[in-house]
Amino acid sequence: MKKTTKCLLGFGVLVIAATILVSADHIDAPSPAGTSADIADFYAFEPSEGSDNTVFVVDLQSNVLPDLAYGTFDEDVLTEINIDLDGDLMEDQVIQAIARDGRMYFFGPTAPSQTGLNSEVYTDATLGDVEISSNAAIVETTSEGVSLFAGPRQDPFFFDFFQFNAVISPELDSAPSGFLPPEEAADTFDGANTMSIVVEIPNSMLGTPTATNALGLSVYKVWVTTNRKQ
């Protein structure tokens, strides 16, 4: 999925006008791989049963190994959480995050002035900012009860990558038993990290969810895009 975005940024004296950003999917092309334009995983959930908050977690740049220098957030990449409230699969609210000088700046939630391929960074809808963590986790909570985090976290995805390759191999006898049971499977991503962006936000700031999941619970329809300045 490609998405081009017109971006207007204004942090202090910094102004970047009418720049073009292009989105990336998860390692579907060489250019985003290994950068914070590469979306690894996206999670949206209640922090506890019956909570009035929703947590959004965007994991970028997979395979950041602990014994190597941590990756950094690319300042030319905008991360956008898109929220559909009426079931038309178009964003009705967006939350945006972009890094500048060791901090992650957040904007929204706000109704976008245009949807689909074009967007703007809504600097008039400032949500807050937080220092980008290195080793210790730094969380900033705003006066509106929004908690913000940005920095490296352990990759939560459990996947036996080598057994998967054996299963899909054209050599039909390479994995005759298929996938291994949990007690025998190897977590290929154990010890690897991602660069994470986390927002915990009151549902009252998002609007009323209109979708229903398989458990019969009301949920938001959400997706995430990354957009690189061109």
Rank of each mutant, 00 (worst) to 15 (best):
Q96P: 02
D76I: 08
L206C: 03
A17M: 10
E91D: 08
V198A: 07
P176W: 02
D92Y: 00
L89W: 11
I138A: 04
L215Q: 13
S134C: 08
T35C: 05
I197C: 02
D155Q: 09
K221Q: 13
K6S: 14
F162L: 07
E49K: 08
R100I: 10
D74E: 08
S143P: 07
A40F: 11
I138N: 01
T142E: 03
D74N: 14
M90S: 15
A37F: 10
D41W: 12
L85F: 00
T208P: 03
G12H: 00
N193H: 15
R153P: 02
N203P: 07
E80P: 03
P181M: 09
F189E: 11
V146A: 01
T188K: 10
I27V: 15
T142H: 04
A192F: 13
T123A: 10
M205A: 06
G116D: 01
Q114D: 13
P181A: 08
D187P: 09
T142Q: 03
S62D: 11
T35D: 02
N82W: 04
S147Y: 00
T142L: 01
H26Q: 11
Y105G: 01
L60R: 04
V167L: 07
P30N: 05
V198G: 04
D160I: 01
P112Q: 03
Q154V: 13
S204G: 06
V139T: 09
T225V: 12
L117N: 14
